[in-house]
Design a protein around this nucleic acid. Structure first.
Lengths: 223, 223
DNA sequence: TTTTGTGAAACGCTTCACAGCG
DNA sequence: CGCTGTGAAGCGTTTCACAAAA
């Protein structure tokens, strides 16, 4: 087998996490690692890790574990991390600016090559070496730019419009920071980053935990 | 029944989304809404919506749908959105600053009441009305502050240390923006926002889609 | 021994399909 | 009728448990 069957979403997510740990192991000069050890690093069972890794191919060694270098290399290839990903950022507000100087992106072959905004006041501003352009220049700038990904960092109400323009241009994928579902006709791939939802889920779980604790006070304080 | 059984995670997530839509419906003065209509707004089936709403309690009306106001009110209560949530932000870098002025939080009863950073250069800075404090003041500032949530927006390598201090203080929940798993001894609730992972998953899916569709040009390598 | 790879069982969530009710 | 609420079926993922390998 060759890891060619469809990879389940939860597995794909974890593969990224495995790759992260493998990078650490590599730079620590570790040569072998077992499923149990990987699992321990991430709070997963060894069985889970092994099952996931069958999608990458099987080159573990019974009694020994996996070759760190080989596993790293294969994971990189499968996850598309051996490619360079150029992205256009739309929205030069607070979130957009944070992304422009977000360090972890630098190590991942992810490059934000251009920045667009609808606010004339921002046009011409140079943020981390990239000049903010009017959004009207989106299509002409992206033409033949090699940009396959779009990052939407505009207010909610403007997100759908931006998405439509990106799709029209022929974008392959969208990273959406607006707390809103994007309605997309074609088979463009979308990944959502929704702070608000994360915050709401956190509050919900905390509220629930408080109610479930032996003392069922509703207007309680922290212990 | 009373909506008291444990709510599955996927359902809890969607309940937040339903609440979002209900707010819109409310402000549009809609009084009734059917599961089918809610589903259409979010790309879900009507059955899914109805099943989810049984966890909120049953007050839908056969042949008519759900009372928007009543549903909204109950969802708010169940999701803990009728409470005020105070949070401490640790890390006044790019992401932290973006969060301090993140508009959507304003409407959610989420308040960042204090900001801490380890960089002396940032101490005393006033960001959106909040003064950056040295992280050494974390414990004394939070004491009796009503803060139950912590937001970690520091570099990866510092995240675990910050988490440990928050746990020691007695925090109830942590919103973690560092692309790293937090190891937490106690039953503190964590919600992760991992840009990097989202970006990686997007790239993976796009790469996979390209390989699967014959028409896409592949600047491929390796095998 | 230790650890992989994997069928099979268990689990959890979604979808189906329909009785019941206004 | 139209729409809810819900058992039951279906499906995808995780966990179990063990033969095989070194």
């Amino acid at each position: 087998m060759d890891g060619k069957q469809n990879i389940p979403r939860p597995t794909a997510r974890r593969l990224s996490l495995y790759l992260r740990e493998l990078v650490v192991l590599l730079s620590a000069n570790r040569t072998m690692v077992s499923s149990k050890q990987i699992g321990a690093l991430l709070g997963l069972t060894d069985a889970q890790v092994r099952k996931d890794l069958t999608f990458v191919g099987q080159f573990g060694h019974s009694g020994v574990g996996y070759d760190v270098r080989k596993l790293h290399e294969n994971l990189r290839r499968i996850l598309g991390r051996d490619l360079i990903w150029n992205a256009a950022l739309i929205g030069a507000g607070n979130i957009g600016r944070a992304l422009l100087s977000y360090r972890p992106f630098d190590e991942l072959n992810f490059h934000i090559t251009s920045v667009f905004d609808s606010d004339p006041g921002s046009w011409g501003l140079v943020l981390n070496k990239r000049t903010v352009q009017p959004i009207s220049e989106l299509e002409t700038t992206l033409e033949n730019s090699g940009v396959r990904l779009g990052i939407i960092a505009v207010p909610s109400h403007a997100a759908q419009g931006v998405a439509d323009r990106l799709v029209e241009y022929g974008i392959d994928g969208i990273l959406n920071f607006a707390p809103r579902r994007l309605e997309l006709s074609t088979d463009v791939i979308v990944s959502n980053v929704d702070f608000t939802l994360s915050f709401e889920q956190l509050a919900f779980q905390v509220a629930q935990a408080s109610h479930l604790s032996p003392d069922k006070e509703i207007d309680d304080l922290s212990r």
